[in-house]
C-alpha cells in the first residue's frame, strides 16, 4: 500500500522497513515524519484532525502520482492520520526512493509541500484554555510556487 489514511497510530520503523524492502534499484530512501508539536506553553491536550472522506484518498493518490511523474523514483509512500492525536504522536510520514539521493529528497519535499496545502485535512488544537483551528500559513502556500 503506497497511500494510507489511518485513524490508529502506525509503526514508523515497520512502515519504513516494509517500504525499503519493496524497492529495487534504489540507492537512497528519504523519509519525513510529522509529529504533534506541543504548544509553546506545554498545554496542548490533543489535536483533532478532520478530513474529507473520499476527496482525501483521491488527493493523496494524485499528489503521489505527480511526484512519480516528475522524478525517476522507484517508489513513493504517504501515510496520514486523522482523528484524535496526543502531543508527540506521529501525524504522517512520506517516504521516497530513488537511484540517487537528490531525486528522493526533492520528491519528499514536493510531497510535503502539497500535503500541507492541497490535501483536505484540518487541524484543531485543544488546550486547557479551549480549542482553536490551526490557520494555514502563507509560507506553506508560497512553497508550492517553486514546483510550478
Amino acid at each position: 500500500m503506497t497511500v494510507k489514511l489511518l485513524s490508529a497510530p502506525f509503526d514508523l520503523a515497520a512502515e519504513t522497513d516494509a517500504f525499503a524492502a519493496a524497492q529495487t534499484g534504489a540507492g537512497g530512501i528519504v523519509t519525513f515524519t510529522g509529529v504533534v508539536r506541543d504548544a509553546e506553553t506545554g498545554t496542548l491536550e490533543r489535536m483533532e484532525i478532520e478530513h474529507y472522506p473520499g476527496m482525501t484518498e483521491r488527493a493523496l493518490q494524485d499528489i503521489r502520482d505527480a511526484a512519480l511523474a516528475r522524478w525517476p523514483l522507484s517508489g513513493a509512500m504517504i501515510i496520514h492520520r486523522f482523528g484524535t492525536l496526543r502531543p508527540g504522536e506521529t501525524i504522517m510520514m512520506v517516504a521516497t526512493a530513488s537511484r540517487h539521493r537528490a531525486d528522493a529528497f526533492a520528491a519528499a519535499e514536493f510531497l510535503m509541500d502539497y500535503l500541507k496545502s492541497r490535501a483536505p485535512f484540518w487541524k484543531k488544537e485543544v488546550t486547557g484554555q479551549g480549542a482553536a483551528w490551526v490557520d494555514a500559513r502563507d509560507v506553506d502556500e508560497a512553497a508550492l510556487e517553486r514546483w510550478q
Binding site: K116, F121, D135, A136
Partner: peptide, 10 residues
C-alpha cells in the same frame, strides 16, 4: 459541493 478553510495537512 464542499466548502472549507485553507487546508492544513502534513
Amino acid at each position: 459541493v464542499a466548502f472549507f478553510p485553507p487546508m492544513t495537512g502534513g
